[in-house]
Amino acid sequence: MRTLWKSIILYGLLTAGAVLSVYPLIYMLLTAFKPMTLLFEFPPKLIPSELTWDNFAEAWASQNFSIYMFNSVIVTIASFILIFALSAMLAFSFSRFQFRGKRMVFGILMGSLVIPSLTLIIPQFMLIRDLGLFDSHWGLITVYAAGGIPFTTFLLKGFFDSISRDIDESVEMDGGSAFKLFTAIILPLSKPAFVPATIFNALVIWEEFPWALTIINDPLKRTLPIALANFQGQYTTQWGIVFAGSLIAIVPIIVLFVLLQRYFVAGITAGAVKG
Results as ranks from 00 to 15, higher is better:
Arg100Pro: 02
Met1Ile: 04
Leu156Asn: 02
Phe182Asp: 08
Ser7Met: 06
Phe179Met: 13
Pro116Ala: 11
Phe42Gly: 00
Leu25Val: 15
Gln63Arg: 12
Val242Gly: 01
Gly17Arg: 06
Gly175His: 10
Thr236Ala: 13
Ile167Asn: 01
Phe182Tyr: 14
Val273Gly: 03
Asn71Thr: 05
Phe134Gly: 09
Leu203Val: 15
Val265Lys: 05
Thr214Asn: 12
Pro48Glu: 09
Tyr144Arg: 11
Tyr27His: 12
Glu169Ile: 13
Thr183Ala: 06
Phe65Asp: 04
Lys6Val: 03
Thr236Trp: 11
Ile215Cys: 00
Pro116Thr: 07
Asp54Val: 12
Phe33Val: 14
Glu172Phe: 14
Asn64Lys: 09
Lys34Ala: 06
Ile67Arg: 12
Ile205Trp: 09
Leu140Met: 13
Leu38Tyr: 12
Thr76Tyr: 01
Thr198Gly: 07
Ile47Met: 10
Pro252Cys: 12
Phe56Thr: 06
Leu260Phe: 05
Lys34Gly: 00
Ser93Ile: 04
Gly176Asp: 08
Thr223Val: 15
Glu172Leu: 13
Ser136Asn: 10
Pro123Trp: 08
Val242Glu: 03
Asp166Cys: 04
Arg100His: 14
Thr214Gly: 02
Lys180Gln: 14
Leu4Ala: 14
Met89Val: 10
Asp130Val: 00
Ile67Ala: 08
Phe151Gly: 04
Phe151Pro: 01
Val105His: 00
Val242Thr: 03
Arg96Val: 06
Leu46Asn: 01
Leu187Thr: 11
Ala193Pro: 03
Ile81Ala: 13
Pro196Phe: 05
Met36Ala: 15
Asp174Gly: 14
Val255Pro: 10
Gly107Tyr: 02
Arg222Ser: 08
Ile121Trp: 04
Pro188Ser: 07
Leu127Tyr: 02
Thr223Glu: 04
Glu208Asn: 13
Ile81Cys: 11
Ala78Glu: 07
Phe200Asn: 14
Leu259Pro: 03
Leu220Ala: 15
Gly233Thr: 09
Gly12Trp: 07
Ala91Leu: 08
Phe182Ser: 01
Ser136Gln: 14
Leu133His: 07
Ile67Asn: 04
Val143Ala: 00
Phe194Asp: 03
Lys221Ile: 08
Ala266Leu: 06
Leu256Thr: 04
Val73Gly: 00
Leu203Gln: 11
Val73Met: 05
Ile241Trp: 07
Glu169His: 04
Phe243Trp: 12
Glu41Cys: 00
Ile250Arg: 06
Glu58His: 09
Lys6Thr: 11
Leu90Trp: 00
Phe154Tyr: 15
Leu14Phe: 14
Leu14Ser: 07
Ser162Gly: 11
Ala88Gly: 12
Ile74Asn: 00
Ile128Lys: 06
Ser246Gly: 15
Leu131Pro: 05
Glu207Ile: 13
Ile163Phe: 08
Tyr68Gly: 02
Tyr68Phe: 03
Thr223Gln: 12
Lys102Ala: 10
Ala32Tyr: 09
Leu113Asn: 07
Glu41Thr: 13
Phe33His: 08
Gln238Leu: 14
Leu131Val: 04
Phe99Tyr: 14
Thr153Ala: 10
Leu20Phe: 15
Ile83Pro: 00
Ile26Phe: 05
Pro44Thr: 10
Gly107Asp: 02
Gln124Ile: 05
Gly233Cys: 10
